[in-house]
Structure formats: structure tokens, C-alpha cells
Amino acid sequence: MGQDKVSSNKTPSRKTPQALDFKSATLYAIRVVLHEADTQALLDALAKRMRDAGAFFENEAVVVDASGIEQLVDWPTLVEALRKHSLHPLGVVADGAQQAAAIAAGLPSVDVGGAPVRPTVAPAPEHDVPPAAVTPEKTSGHAAPTAAGPADTAPAAQEARTESPSEVPAPPAAAPAAMVINRPLRSGQRVYARNTDLIVIGVVSRGAEVIADGNIHVYGPLRGKAMAGARGDASARIFTTQLDPELVAIAGVYRVIETGLEPALQNKPAIVSLSGESLQIESLGN
């Protein structure tokens, strides 16, 4: 199982002195859900399923889910049968005595959660908001470039200020599902969608802040502050059905709207995007 990782890291020009590295990995695995414990019934069902499926499941990693049955399974026999069918059992989902028996047969306990779902995100804690998202207040109505650097450390963000925008690190590649907020955001509330888009269904009041590493969609009046591309994604945009913000920002380029927008845009559906170094606000539809 671990061979892949090791082989992919054998580039000879590595600077680090270590012979190995630890990195995180996410596996795709088949879940084999057991409905009964009877060994013969399981072996028969397994043989039938593998015959029906042809080579479809061959050489797949397998997690055995025994969480639904209480009677003890004959784990050594089941593991052997799975291997014989060219399946690679990686772990077991079970608890209590069942779990202990599976571990004794060489299957580590794994946690795969409930039904397979797309990854979703919870609001990140306040202190995790990247510094680039929290732009300094400026009283001018002009768009001004600010730091759009990595969020890890404050000094890094400082350095990014002097660099060209092209050296801004790329946004995270694989985004989880968008964060959806299905309630009004009131004055003093702040929501940050880390690594993803933010969708708000309802009003974003004056004094509320919505921040996302991706795009921001507000289905309702956007009256507070909205900061998209908080970690420097210059392609992020802000969409709303009623634009009346205190501040909009994309990738750290922000504009304070002190005296309202021009009548053609004020309280209208609109898109805010970044074009070069300046923010563009366009009316949506007509």
C-alpha cells in the first residue's frame, strides 16, 4: 500500500536530508458492507458479486463495514477470501468485540464516517482569517492594491506587498463544496469560507462581513463587507442580487463605498470582479 508514495518521492535531487517524508494522502476505497456474519453466506455472496462484476472491482482497496451486525465475523477467513478475489482489505469499520476481532486478524480500524458525502466546511475560527482578507480601512473611494500574499505568516504577507501580483501563490486546487449560509448575517457577524465559495441566502447587514477564498454569492441585499479570493485568487468574484456594500475586495484589492454607488448599480444585481489592479462592478442582466 505504501509503495506508491515511496517510489514517487525518490527524486535524487531532494534537498532534505531525510530518507523519507510524511505527507497526507486521501484514498479511494470500496466499502464492503456486511449484512450478516455467517461465513459461508458471506463467501458465497462475495464470489457471486465478483463473478457478476467481472474485473470491475479487481485490485481495489476495500474497507469492510461491519457496523451493522453484532454477531462475530470469522475475520481471518473473510480477509483471505477477499485477497483471493484480488481485493485489498485495508481496514474495518466496527466497534466493540467485532472491532477487536478484526484488529486481531490484521485489519486496522478506520473511520469512514456515514454515507459518502462531498466534503463540506464549517466556518473557520475568527483567528484563521487570512491577513490579506482583512484589509486596512481607507477613506478614499479608489481601488487600492494591498497585500495578497500567503496567509501563513504576517511577515510573508508583508513581503508579498513588494512583489508583482504574478508571484502570488496559486489558490488551493481542489475546492470542497461551497459553504451555504441559509440565514441573514447580522451586524457584527463574520463568516469565512476557507478554500471554497460562500453562498449566503438572505441579507448581509451593515457591519457584517463575508469572506471566502473563492467566490461570494449573496442572494439578498449585500450591505456589509464582502471579500472574495481572500488568499489571493484574483479570478474570484462577488455576485449579489442587491448591491449596497460598505466594502468589496477581491484578492486584497478593495474599494470602500462611502457614499453609495452610481444609481445604475446601487441596489441592483451585480458582479464584482478584478481586472488587473482595479475592481470592476458590472450590473447583472440588462
Binding site: R183, R186, S187, G188, S205, R206
Partner: peptide, 24 residues
């Protein structure tokens, strides 16, 4: 009105109903 907005935010986030996930 602004303070009421703030209070509404607190009601929706820091009440027992919010913490238990009951109807707001």
C-alpha cells in the same frame, strides 16, 4: 436599528435553540 440587527445576530448564534440545532 443597527443595535437590533446585532442582537438578532446574537439570538441566532448564541441561544439554546441555536446550540441545540432546534427551530430558531
Amino acid at each position: 436599528v443597527r443595535d437590533s440587527d446585532r442582537i438578532l445576530g446574537i439570538l441566532s448564534a448564541k441561544s439554546r435553540r441555536a446550540e441545540r440545532g432546534d427551530d430558531p
